[in-house]
Amino acid sequence: MPTLLFYILAAITLLSTVLCLTRKNPVHAVLYLVHALFALALLYFLLGAPLLAAWQIILYAGAIMVLFLFIIMLVESPVADQSSRRLSRWLPPAALSGSLLVCGGALIVMDPAATAVISSYWLTPRDFGCALFEHYGLAVEIISLILLFAAVGAFHLGRRYRPNSKEDVS
């Protein structure tokens, strides 16, 4: 059963990624990418990484995709959408989300207490934290510095654009 779920989720991931990369409208592309990220989170869960699955949803599908949507709303000119009243237009996203929901439900039914039934290898959050902070504390510090530099760089780039100032002339 987990093997079958793996192939179903792999098909969902590939399908929604291809749909994502072929959309004209970036908002639709981001929504299909969220489908792909959810399917990838369930794949992580199947492969024995429950904590990474949770972070995939919180960080990627939550934070990063919302950032993408903000920026798209900020920079894209609005596209008039005439065909949104047709019901068949909602069929691909509805089918993808429905099958994702069924797969997630099947995972919960198979393994309600999240004991190591699904996968032969199962890294609990406690073991994950021990392995991370016992052996890779320096990596955590470096990653936090990278995030700090990225925040400073984004702040620097996002200053108000002044046409008269010397460095912003283009």
């Binding site: 904590l51 990063i64 990653i143 995030l147 990225a150 780039l157 283009s170």
Partner: peptide, 28 residues
């Protein structure tokens, strides 16, 4: 799995800078 976590953090940093660049280019 630990490296996958670090990869997520790097991806978040990359997206932050890249989207700031997008806004900058759109403005200029």
């Amino acid at each position: 799995q630990l490296f996958a976590l670090l990869l997520m953090a790097v991806a978040a940093a990359e997206v932050t800078v890249a989207l700031a660049l997008v806004v900058y280019l759109k403005r200029s």
